[in-house]
Computed example of a mutant assay.
Amino acid sequence: MSRTPQAVAARRPAYLAELAQGTDRFHEPPRPDCPWCGSTRLRTRLRTTDLLQHKPGTFTVDQCEVCRHSFQNPRLTPEGLAFYYRDFYDGLYADQAEKIFGPQSSAKRHLRAARALRKYIEPESWLDVGTGRAHFPAVARRVLPYTAFDGLDAGPAVEEGRRRGRIQRAHRGLLTDLAPRLAGRYDAMTMFHHLEHAVEPREELKAAHRVLRPGGHLLIEVPDPESRYAKLLRKWWVPYFQPQHLHFIPLANLRTELRALGFTVVAVDRREPHVPLDLSAACALLLGHCLPHRDDPWRKAPGRLRRRLRQVLVYVAAPAFVVCYAADALLAPLVSRTRFSNAYRIIARRNP
């Protein structure tokens, strides 16, 4: 569905009726302990609103002072997750999400990741978890032409990936639910920025161990909560991605968990997974917060004068975004080699 004024207006009554009931019901009760280590020594790391779509609601990220794990607290309920995901990757803003997360923005990173795993294995079968429209398999087959790629995703986009020939099989659902049926089927598995969305990331890792064959390899990329950009930019650091990101796992914690599950970590990298967008994305979030709001179905329709004012201010603010974008690109070779890198990669082999 394209984002037209008619499509926005058609969805507005349902959104406003839903929001009339309040947003508190979208949250579980706050938990007093860390979901990773169980410690009750928690501190508030972040309080923010939805800076992405500007849907109503307030969100808190707590951090454990013992293991440094950070997590959304209180966490969204399944109903809340459905509300905040709606019209982001599909529906009204599917075209916008495709521009941000599609092949043009991620092809080089995907190609580097495929080559990184090829150093350790040339798999016959590969499962891409959280594949969306299967952009990664489409790129990875350039370096692994004889590998059979399948995709798994909870949304309908995975079916589109299969129809376009990017994957052979489309598994729609959650990895934790499908793992018994897929047990021992794959030589390789990727999770690109998937674990931070998972309600229970540990269960996702257990399911990955079950789906992989002995000797199979798992490649994970996630935001790095220890990035110095997170402290510098605070709520404007886009990898916080509230309310969608539920967990922020420090590298040491993920390494320890993989080993405990029966994996051997064979490679760790903070350089290649870095995405050079911290400054430009922060600028875009700040502008989106300050400018008059656009015509979204979860808010009252703006008047003509307000819409015109937004258009003028977007043009006025464009040079600031261009400067930040150029700075991200120029600084990327240096930033990716420092603790300002915003993501990390782990490759682990399932033990025999």
Score class of each variant (00 low, 15 high):
67 C>E: 12
67 C>V: 03
67 C>N: 08
67 C>W: 08
70 S>Y: 12
71 F>Y: 08
72 Q>I: 00
72 Q>W: 00
72 Q>F: 01
73 N>D: 09
73 N>K: 03
74 P>T: 03
75 R>D: 05
76 L>M: 11
77 T>Y: 02
77 T>K: 03
77 T>I: 03
78 P>H: 09
78 P>W: 06
78 P>L: 09
81 L>Q: 11
82 A>V: 06
84 Y>F: 14
85 Y>S: 04
86 R>S: 06
86 R>Y: 01
86 R>N: 06
86 R>Q: 12
87 D>H: 10
88 F>H: 11
89 Y>A: 08
89 Y>L: 08
90 D>Y: 00
90 D>Q: 15
91 G>C: 13
92 L>H: 14
93 Y>D: 15
93 Y>K: 02
93 Y>H: 12
93 Y>I: 03
94 A>K: 09
95 D>S: 09
96 Q>C: 00
96 Q>K: 05
97 A>S: 13
97 A>E: 03
97 A>G: 03
99 K>G: 12
99 K>P: 01
99 K>L: 11
101 F>Y: 14
101 F>S: 11
103 P>H: 03
103 P>M: 07
104 Q>I: 02
104 Q>P: 01
105 S>H: 01
106 S>C: 14
106 S>D: 10
106 S>L: 15
106 S>P: 00
107 A>I: 08
107 A>Y: 08
108 K>C: 10
108 K>T: 12
109 R>N: 03
110 H>W: 11
110 H>I: 02
110 H>M: 09
112 R>W: 07
113 A>H: 11
113 A>G: 14
113 A>E: 11
114 A>T: 14
115 R>I: 02
115 R>D: 12
116 A>G: 12
116 A>Q: 15
116 A>K: 13
116 A>T: 14
117 L>F: 04
119 K>R: 15
119 K>E: 15
120 Y>T: 13
120 Y>N: 05
122 E>S: 13
122 E>H: 07
124 E>F: 04
125 S>E: 12
125 S>N: 10
126 W>I: 12
126 W>Q: 01
127 L>W: 10
128 D>W: 08
128 D>V: 09
128 D>A: 04
129 V>G: 04
130 G>L: 06
130 G>D: 09
130 G>A: 08
130 G>I: 05
132 G>Q: 14
133 R>N: 13
134 A>H: 12
135 H>L: 09
135 H>N: 14
136 F>N: 03
138 A>N: 08
138 A>T: 04
138 A>R: 09
138 A>S: 10
139 V>G: 05
139 V>C: 05
139 V>S: 05
140 A>L: 09
141 R>A: 09
142 R>A: 12
142 R>V: 06
143 V>R: 02
144 L>Q: 09
144 L>E: 05
145 P>L: 13
145 P>R: 14
145 P>M: 11
145 P>T: 10
145 P>V: 13
146 Y>W: 04
146 Y>S: 15
147 T>D: 07
148 A>I: 14
148 A>Y: 01
150 D>R: 09
151 G>S: 08
151 G>E: 01
151 G>T: 06
152 L>R: 05
153 D>Y: 01
154 A>I: 02
154 A>F: 07
154 A>K: 03
154 A>T: 06
155 G>F: 04
156 P>M: 01
158 V>E: 00
159 E>H: 01
159 E>D: 00
160 E>N: 10
160 E>Q: 11
160 E>L: 07
161 G>I: 10
162 R>H: 02
163 R>H: 12
163 R>I: 00
163 R>N: 10
164 R>M: 15
164 R>D: 15
